[in-house]
Simulated scan of single mutants.
Amino acid sequence: MAEVFVIYYHKILPRLGFDVFYKTFDLEMKILKSFYNVVNLDEIEQYIKEDKRPNKPTVAITFDDGYVDNFVYAYPILKKHGLKATIFPIASRILQKDFVRPTLFDYWQGKVSFKELHQPKTMAQANLEYLKHGVKDTKDWDFLTVAELNKMKDVFDVGGHAYLHSRVFYDEEIIDFYDGKNGHWSFYYAYGEEPKIGFPILKSQNNLAVERSYIKKEVKDYVKSLDESYFKQKDWKIRLKKELLKKFDKIVDKEPMQERKERVIKELQDSKSMLESMINQKIRHFAYPFGHYDDLLVELVGLFFETAFTTEKDVIKSKTNLHKIPRFGIPKDISSFIAVLGKAKIKGVKS
């Protein structure tokens, strides 16, 4: 019996860079078309429920977050090869507009030059833009429009990926301080404001997967009150940690579990309803933002979705939990893609 597994992408680029180049993606799809049975997530669900193993290696293709380059570059390539995929867009990032940007189809047909196609931002740039400004009604917006999402439905199924998609702090221990170079784009949401030099950094995860820790306003105000010269000291982080622990009984306010539960239920329910109204279809599958989950989140996701997908690197095995289905992330170079296929084959033999 052959291996069954799921892969995921984020962005497809018009040039070599920080993620998968579109010509590399084209070659990868050609390989999958030639040597694999490419299925959708409904079929993955059936493989698990029926404990079924095919005779030919089988894979499902997924995309996370809902970037417009998935429409501009990935969609035409998938359609060219006759392949299906699933996209998990972040509900809050979708632009509620009916305009459709040019794709590779338009380039292939001579309607636009290659330079006229959308030039993707990095994931950090795109998500930070959202957290700072909200959804921008502009054609250089890096996420999909409703019209683009619907236009892709002949190739892409649509799954849920929550509404906020941001890391939050969940602990009380200070593990570092923001110094202007060590931040994550989601800190803008975690702090509830633009990060300032000296703000404490705590352990963080997907906002759905934890009881949130809110850094107290008086702690942030104290850090803001410090002179710039304070942060020029070589040992300012050590000094600041001692001062904060001495000055404040508590660094954070912790969210009660019941409050988190109600918050998560609302976000899952609202984001699912929002996406279903956009595409006029039921949504059955979910991908955990950042791949983070705990037992409570798995339980709550199961109230709304038939399956849920992690970022754990493994194949589909006998009795795989329908709400903890693993996926292999695809790196940007072709040799790493081949390595992922090899790893799936080895794990498939062992399972």
Score class of each variant (00 low, 15 high):
residue 68 V to R: 08
residue 69 D to S: 02
residue 69 D to E: 11
residue 70 N to Q: 10
residue 71 F to A: 01
residue 72 V to R: 06
residue 73 Y to H: 07
residue 73 Y to S: 07
residue 74 A to H: 15
residue 75 Y to L: 05
residue 75 Y to W: 09
residue 76 P to L: 01
residue 76 P to S: 00
residue 76 P to Q: 00
residue 76 P to D: 01
residue 76 P to N: 01
residue 76 P to G: 01
residue 78 L to A: 07
residue 78 L to V: 05
residue 78 L to C: 11
residue 78 L to F: 08
residue 79 K to W: 09
residue 79 K to N: 13
residue 80 K to M: 03
residue 80 K to S: 00
residue 81 H to F: 13
residue 81 H to P: 15
residue 81 H to T: 06
residue 82 G to S: 07
residue 83 L to Y: 11
residue 83 L to S: 04
residue 84 K to H: 07
residue 84 K to S: 10
residue 84 K to A: 15
residue 85 A to V: 13
residue 85 A to W: 06
residue 85 A to R: 10
residue 86 T to Q: 06
residue 88 F to V: 12
residue 89 P to W: 11
residue 89 P to Q: 12
residue 90 I to L: 07
residue 90 I to S: 02
residue 90 I to D: 08
residue 91 A to I: 13
residue 92 S to T: 11
residue 92 S to E: 14
residue 92 S to I: 11
residue 93 R to M: 12
residue 93 R to E: 05
residue 93 R to C: 10
residue 95 L to K: 13
residue 95 L to V: 09
residue 96 Q to E: 15
residue 96 Q to V: 11
residue 96 Q to Y: 09
residue 96 Q to H: 04
residue 97 K to C: 15
residue 97 K to G: 14
residue 98 D to Q: 14
residue 100 V to M: 12
residue 100 V to Y: 05
residue 102 P to K: 00
residue 102 P to I: 09
residue 103 T to H: 06
residue 103 T to S: 07
residue 104 L to Q: 03
residue 104 L to Y: 04
residue 105 F to L: 07
residue 105 F to I: 12
residue 105 F to S: 13
residue 106 D to M: 05
residue 109 Q to I: 14
residue 111 K to D: 15
residue 112 V to H: 08
residue 112 V to Y: 13
residue 112 V to R: 07
residue 113 S to F: 09
residue 114 F to Y: 15
residue 115 K to R: 12
